[in-house]
Each structure stands twice: as C-alpha cells, then as structure tokens.
Design a protein around this nucleic acid. Structure first.
Lengths: 215, 215
DNA sequence: CGTGGGCTTGATAGTCCTCAAGTCGGGTGG
DNA sequence: CCACCCGACTTGAGGACTATCAAGCCCACG
C-alpha cells in the first residue's frame, strides 16, 4: 500500500468547496475527474423526461463520486451537493492505473462500486415493496446505519440534512405526503426529524416497519 | 487476450441446465461460483420482509451472474431462472486472478458490473417517476434494446418470456393492474405481448411514454 | 420589514390495490 | 381419446393510498 499511496497522491489535485444545492457533476460529463468527499453530503440522481427526478443514492463523507464515469466513460446521472460540500479532486486516470499496477487498490474501488450498487438494489426494493411509512423507515435506518458504521452516532441526534423534497424524490412520493407520514412516525413515537437531525426513538419498531431485514 | 483465454478456460467448469422458475443462486450464498448464461433468461431479485419481492434486473444470454458475490464475498439477492436455462460455470477465483494478472479482463468485468448497476438506476428512476403505463413502456423498450444491441431483432416479434407476475414484481405493481395496462397499450396500438413475444407497433410512441430518454 | 424557501395542512380526485370469481390452454392420468 | 387439473391470465367492484392543488405558516435572510 506504499506504492498505492504514491499513486493516489500523484494523481490528487486541489480540493473544491461548494455551497448546498449546487451541481457537482452533470449527466453526460466525460469521466476525467473523480471526487472524494471530505465533508458534507451529496446525492446522485437521474431526471426523467417528465420533469421528475429520482434520487438514487446519498453520498457521505469519505465516499468516491464518479467511479461509474471512470469505468464506463460517461456518467448517466448527475450529482448535486446536499449540504455545503468539501471534496478533493482525483484524476480519473487513477482507475486505469490501479487496474494496471495496483490490483489491491482496483479491488477496493470495485468493492466500493459494488456496495453502492447494493444500496440502489435496497432502495429499489423498498420503493417497489413498501408503502410510504416503510420507505421512510427504510431510508432512516439506512442513513443511520451508514453513519453508525463509521462514527459513534447518537440515535437521538443523527445527522440527517435531507429535506422533505429530497426524501420525496428519493422515495417516489410527494413532499406533502412525506410530511404527513413523518408526522405519523413522530406521533407514534417511532422517529422524527428536527433541525436536520434524525431522532430514532424506537429502533426495533423502525426496523420492523422497514421490512425487518437488517442490512 | 491469449492469456486471458487460458485463464478463463482453466477456471471454467461444467455447464448446468435448469428448467424455468428454479433457484440458480440463493441470497446469502458465498460467492465461489460464477455463471455465464449460454441460453435462456434469468432474473435477480430481493425479497423484502413482508412477503413481496422486487425483481432488480433480467439477465440475458451472454451475461455473467454472481459478479457481486465474487467482489463483495456474499450475494445480497437471489437469482432464478425465468425460462429454461443453460449456463456454464466459472470459478469465482477468476475475478481475483483477473485483478492480479489480467487487468484488461478485470476492467471488462468491472464494466459489466457498472452496466448492470446502470440498468438498476434506470429501473429505479422508472418506478419512482412514472405511472403504470410509463413503467411498462420503459421495461419493454429496455428489453428490446438490450436484445437489438446484440442480434437482429424484429420489433414485431421480440422474445419476451416475462410473465405478468414478473412484470408486476419488477415494476412495483400488481399482476391485475399490469394486465389492465397491457390491454390499454394493445388497444391503443402501441405494443402488445403475445405468446412470449413482444410486438412494438409504435416505437416512437412507446419511447415517449417511457420518458423520451433513449438510453 | 419585506421576501422567499421550506414546511404544514386541507379537500378533492386519481391511480392502483385487494379480493374474488371466471376463462383459457396445456399437460396428466385414466 | 377424453376428463381432469393446474397455472396463468382476465375481469369486476369496492376501497386504500397517494397525488394534486392551493392556501397559510414560519423562520432565515437581505
């Protein structure tokens, strides 16, 4: 991993800061750069002809943005900043180089891509199989567990900078209905979102609503 | 690619035949084998706690099954045969070997995985953004274009061995509603499914219904 | 203090689901 | 060869869930 570090450093560019709600990558861009999120959240989405957009995944600090573009050549989705965002810029050639001379690094990148694909599979399953309550419960759990896997997170104060409209676009619902459903979850003492913080009051109940399957 | 072939052949096992509607891989299996579809169709799906399943992707001849398991270690979804199926068996170590000594092969496998992920992104977008007509139109187009990209396909007789229930499970609808919507598409002269064959009568209309975006 | 964006809430309508019964075709056993 | 049977497909009526549209609220911000 010594030479890996050298490779990464050689192809690491400057960093970039962005306010919230800005374009990081636009659909169709050719994949010449990769980003690594230093701080802040982003999300990737597709827009779909009829003016509606579908959020495919949320991207948290530490994650790589634009891997698909580096492998396939072009990106089929866009990426926006969700919060203020700070990213470091990598040269996309790092992927080709990794495959050529750093198999372990290439393997790790592939694993990252596979994990990302896995999350999309889960989201698709949630949308296809659950009603509004189940979908929201699923997303809450997913976001919570992703963060808890890295840091120590208080279930009653888990960072959750996702707006109603983002939830709606991610879960195939409308903002109005997201709101109603959120109210129900709060009234029933399951979970609530306040001031960009998620409070999980009844984890087992939330898990049950989300389909029981702990990813 | 000479040595690639050697590697592939060295790790290619027997082949396997399966009737329709059988388990090829079960969720949770450790990824020690890969399959390459010689003939027939399969689909991969997740089941979701409440007894419902979500089909994530259809797998056509020539495609690889179980890549994710080979990269991540375990599989988070199951794979069933849709029609009678004939597959050849590969040793999953081929993936590790490819990364270690055949960068081009590894790259190609990664591209395959990325294309698969891309299809899931599209399906998720269709389910999140379209109503029943749009979703069905999307799936018809997707399946047609995947086949037309490989073989010469008659738009009026495109192989489509997908049952109502499969459509329902893939598109987040019920079999009954799939049927009604299929009737509407047929009556309006857009497309119809008969005897496992898809007939596209009005391609531009179908494309429009599917969101206009030609993948 | 005005403004704008996000949040809330209500009434209405539409899409889609549920449940159930009935049809059709192909395969099986007598 | 025919009766039977089963799975897949159809179709209908009623109801549940969610979208739509619109209005009002609230806070942060200029």
């Amino acid at each position: 991993t010594r030479s890996e570090e050298q490779l990464v450093e050689a192809l690491t560019g400057r960093s970039l800061s962005l306010p919230s709600n800005r374009v990081l990558i636009d659909k169709g861009e050719v994949g010449v750069v990769l980003y690594r999120i230093v701080s802040g959240w982003a999300y990737r989405y597709r827009s779909s002809g009829n003016g509606c957009r579908q959020i495919l995944d949320f991207l948290l600090p530490g994650e790589i943005v634009g891997l698909q573009a580096a492998v396939l050549g072009v990106l089929d989705h866009s990426v926006h900043s969700l919060t203020a965002l700070h990213v470091s810029i990598l040269d996309a050639r790092i992927v080709g180089e990794a495959f050529r001379s750093e198999p372990n690094l290439a393997m790790r990148l592939s694993r990252h891509a596979a994990a990302e694909a896995c999350r999309v599979d889960e989201l698709l399953t949630a949308i296809g199989c659950f009603d509004a309550v189940g979908r929201i419960a699923f997303l809450m759990l997913s976001v919570y567990e992703r963060q808890a896997g890295r840091d120590e997170i208080d279930p009653l104060a888990c960072p959750f900078p996702v707006r109603r409209q983002h939830l709606a676009d991610a879960l195939g619902l409308t903002g109005a209905h997201i709101n109603r459903t959120l109210n129900r979850l709060r009234e029933e003492g399951v979970a609530s979102i306040n001031n960009q913080l998620l409070s999980i009051r009844d984890l087992s109940r939330l898990t049950e609503l989300a389909g029981g399957a702990a990813p």
